[in-house]
Amino acid sequence: MSLTVAQVLAAKSDGGRTVHTIGKDSTVLAALELMAEKGIGALVVIADDQIVGIVTERDYARKVELCARSAGTTRVDEIMTGKVRYVEPTQSADECMALMTEHRMRHLPVLDDGRLSGIVSIGDLLKQQIADQQFTIDQLEHYIQGAPSPVHLR
């Protein structure tokens, strides 16, 4: 059974509460500096308290660096992805993986009642999938050995 987005967020080190944003008029250089400082690969782009896009390291590589543009003078809204796909906390991790795979994305903002409440990355989902698989392996090993199954709190 797939976990929900809310459960994936809760498993993150900060409980999934931290979402880094940047203004659409900011420079790409400012976005890169913020991503480097926070150790993240994407920022939600905001204008007038509304989500207007998402900007990623990939956007920079493909739309600035490869086009010989300057990160110091190019604005975020010039390279961001304007059509933002998002998920809700009740959706499953499997749904997120399918959406990310289909649209070749690595980050999905999470909206709860229309309010930005988190962001899930492909890394978050893979980490959870690996943990689930390890749990299953442990359970099967105990079953095969005839040992009582250890109690795992999740």
Rank of each mutant, 00 (worst) to 15 (best):
L32P: 04
E141Y: 03
M1A: 04
R58Q: 07
V76G: 02
K24F: 02
M100D: 00
P150K: 04
Q145W: 14
R75S: 06
D94W: 08
S149L: 04
Q7D: 06
L99D: 00
F135D: 10
V5S: 01
D94T: 01
E65R: 14
D112E: 13
T73R: 14
H20T: 07
G82H: 09
H142Y: 04
V120K: 05
Y86R: 08
V19E: 13
I130P: 12
T56C: 09
V52G: 02
V110D: 07
T56G: 08
D49A: 07
A147W: 11
S26W: 08
H103W: 15
I137G: 01
V76S: 00
Q134V: 15
S13T: 09
Q129P: 00
Q50E: 11
R106E: 06
R85A: 12
G146F: 15
Q91N: 03
S13L: 09
D132A: 14
G41N: 10
M100P: 04
A6W: 08
D138F: 03
I119D: 10
H103Y: 15
S92Y: 07
T4R: 09
H103I: 04
I40E: 10
T21M: 03
A71E: 05
L116R: 00
G72E: 12
A71K: 14
A47R: 05
L34W: 08
A36T: 13
V110E: 05
A93P: 05
